[in-house]
Design a protein around this nucleic acid. Structure first.
Lengths: 112, 112
DNA sequence: TCCATATTTCACGTATAATTGAAATATGCC
DNA sequence: GGCATATTTCAATTATACGTGAAATATGGA
C-alpha cells in the first residue's frame, strides 16, 4: 500500500489552478499541449504554471517531452485510472455502497 | 461545476493522518466511531485528531453526532461516491481510456 | 453539587506551499 | 555567432497548513 504516492497525487489535484491544468490536459490527451498554450488557456503566468506542472509531474500525473522550442505536457491517463481505482478499492473493501453508485452512474453515462 | 468543494475534499484526503482516519471510518460505516477510539487506533493525540476531523467534516466527508459522553464520527459514503464520480465524469468527458479500466477492474474485483 | 471522562477550542510556534520578478537555459533560424 | 522565442530555475516574500500544551466545554454518575 504505497499511500505516499496517493497522497502526493491527491495533493497535486487539490489546487484550483492545477486541477484546471490537469483537466485541460486530459481533454488534450494523448497528444498534450505546449506550456505556453496551457498558460494562455488557464490564465496563469508562465513561471507559476511551470511550478505547478512540476508538481503534477512529480506526482506522476503529467509527463513532458521537448518538441522543437516547446515543451509538450501531457496527462498520464493510466495514473489517473489507477488513482480512481485506488480510491474505489480502498472504499469498496466491504463497502459496496460507495462503488455501487459510481459504477451505476458510469454505466448510465455515455462515456464508457 | 462546484470545484471549490471538490478541492476541499481532495485536500482533506491529501494528508496521511486524515486518509487513515477516513479509511477507518469507511470501514466502520455506517455506524461510525467515537473520537477516542479513532485517536487510539490511528495513534494521533486527541486534540490533533479533533482538528483533522473538523477538516474532514467541513469538506463534507465526515459527519458527527453526540452519543452520551462520546462524539461519534462517521464517513459520508455518499459524498465519497460523488467525489469519485466527479473525478470520473471529469476525466471521462471524451476520454474513455480513463474510466474504462476503472470499470473493468471494479467488475473483476469482488467488491460490487 | 462535585468529580471524572470525553472531546474540543484557543493561542502560538514552526513548517510547508504558493506566487512572482529577474536571471538562466535551450532551441531554431538568420 | 547572434538574436528571438519558449520555458524553466532561482531567490525572496507572503500565505496557509500543521501540531500541540493548556484551558474550556459537555456529559453522566456519585
Amino acid at each position: 500500500m504505497e499511500s505516499t504516492r496517493t497522497i502526493e497525487q491527491l495533493s497535486a489535484l487539490a489546487h484550483a489552478g492545477r486541477l484546471s491544468v490537469f483537466r485541460l490536459l486530459v481533454r488534450a490527451a494523448p497528444g498534450g499541449l505546449p506550456a505556453g498554450d496551457i498558460a494562455r488557456q488557464v490564465g496563469i503566468p508562465p513561471n507559476t504554471l511551470s511550478a505547478q506542472l512540476t508538481i503534477l509531474n512529480h506526482a506522476g500525473l503529467v509527463h513532458h517531452r521537448r518538441e522543437g522550442r516547446s515543451i509538450i505536457h501531457s496527462a498520464d491517463t493510466g495514473a489517473m485510472s489507477a488513482l480512481i481505482l485506488y480510491l474505489m478499492d480502498d472504499c469498496c473493501s466491504g463497502r459496496p455502497e460507495i462503488c455501487g453508485p459510481v459504477l451505476k452512474a458510469a454505466h448510465d453515462a455515455a462515456c464508457c
